[in-house]
Structure formats: C-alpha cells, structure tokens
C-alpha cells in the first residue's frame, strides 16, 4: 500500500506540474488534472489513501512551484481539503446514483467556491462573489466533466484499480463505494 501511495503521489505531482503549465482563462481556476488520480483512488482504493496522496501532492507541489505557506498555498490547501471532503461524501453516499462526472463536478464546485470565498474575505469585497459566481460554475462544470471522464477511464484502464483488488486490502472501514460496506470518512 505504501508503494501505491508513493507511486500515486508522483503521478499526481507530474499532473500538477503539467497543469501549472496550461494557460488559465481566469487567474486561479486550474484544470485540476491531479484530481484525476485523487478521484480514482477515492473510488477504487480508500479515502485514507486518497487523502494521504492528495495532501502530499498539495504540500510537495507547493514546494516544487515555490511559495509553501504563502497565501496561494493556503488557497490551494483549503480548496483541496474542502473539495476532497465533498468528493468523499459524495462518493460514499451518492456514488451509485451519481457517476464519476457528477462527483467530480461537485468537487470542482467546492474547490472553486472555497477559493473564491477566501479571496473575497481577503479583499473584503462581497461584490466579487456576485460578479464571478456564474463564471466559476461554468468552469467547474467543464473542468469537472473532464476530470471525471479521465478518472473513470484511468480506473478502467489500470487493471489493479478496475479489479478492486486494492479495495479488499483495506480495512473494513476503508471501503469505497464500489464495495459492499464502508464508513464515512
């Protein structure tokens, strides 16, 4: 399991760096390529593994990019944690009803609205939310669909994820939505 965490973290970091190189239409809204791996781990392995990989990616990614513990790190960290919580809850409670795309869109919405809320708090400007929320929803929809689609195909193409072999190696409480039982993260 440790090897999986290390491998997934490296994979997420590569996607994170690649994501930083893609031009952004709105300054802080990124494609969120790294979340492809987080969502795949959340569904096919366990929320503990997904959380460990997700947090390590945010911290190590900030070291790579520069600006650890800077305001941008705090934005990235808070957005990442809130979106993970939302995706984990959605995957746990709504996953057979919602598909990969639905869960991913919810995560993208949570991520972007957390960041927008924090920016508005920092700038003490309530009107910014009124100005930007439709744009944030629009980008969350497009990027969420892309991440959900990619994550689903990652799970299908990687046999160890698709077979659910890693699910059974977790504890009873770690089981993701695809298996019989599980607990709330």
């Amino acid at each position: 399991m440790l090897a999986l965490v290390a491998l997934a973290t490296v994979f997420e970091l590569v996607l994170f760096v690649l994501d930083s190189a893609i031009p952004k239409p709105v300054p802080w809204i990124k494609l969120g390529l790294a979340n492809i791996v987080t969502l795949a781990l959340l569904v096919c392995v366990s929320w503990r593994v997904a959380l460990a990989v997700h947090l390590m990616r945010i911290v190590v990614g900030s070291i790579f990019r520069g600006g650890l513990f800077s305001p941008f790190f705090l934005l990235s960290f808070s957005g990442g944690v809130v979106s993970f919580l939302v995706m984990a809850q959605a995957a746990r409670w709504a996953m057979p009803v919602l598909g990969f795309i639905g869960v991913s869109v919810l995560g993208a919405l949570a991520h972007n609205f957390t960041q927008l809320g924090l920016i508005c708090l920092a700038l003490a400007d309530r009107e910014l939310i009124g100005l930007l929320w439709p744009l944030v929803i629009l980008f969350s929809l497009v990027y969420g669909c892309f991440v959900g689609f990619s994550s689903y195909h990652l799970c299908r193409r990687v046999p160890v994820l698709a077979s659910g072999r890693l699910v059974s190696s977790g504890r009873e409480t770690d089981r993701p939505p695809g298996s019989a039982a599980g607990s709330r993260p």
Binding site: V43, C44, A94, M95, P96, V97, L98, G99, F100, I101, G102, V105, L106, L109, I137, S140, L141, C145, G148, F149, Y152, C155, R156, A162, S163, G164, V167, S168, P177, G178, S179, A180, A181
Partner: peptide, 21 residues
C-alpha cells in the same frame, strides 16, 4: 463482501446536475 463494481461514468442525476447548473 460483494465483488467490486466500478461505478458508472455518467448517470441521469449527473445530467440533471449539469443541466441545472
């Protein structure tokens, strides 16, 4: 324990969520 089944990519509630937003 039941066998693991990969959840679907896209469902009707997903479509409703996306269309609504």
């Amino acid at each position: 324990q039941r066998a693991f089944r990969l959840p679907p990519l896209f469902t009707t509630p997903d479509l409703l969520l996306i269309v609504g937003l």
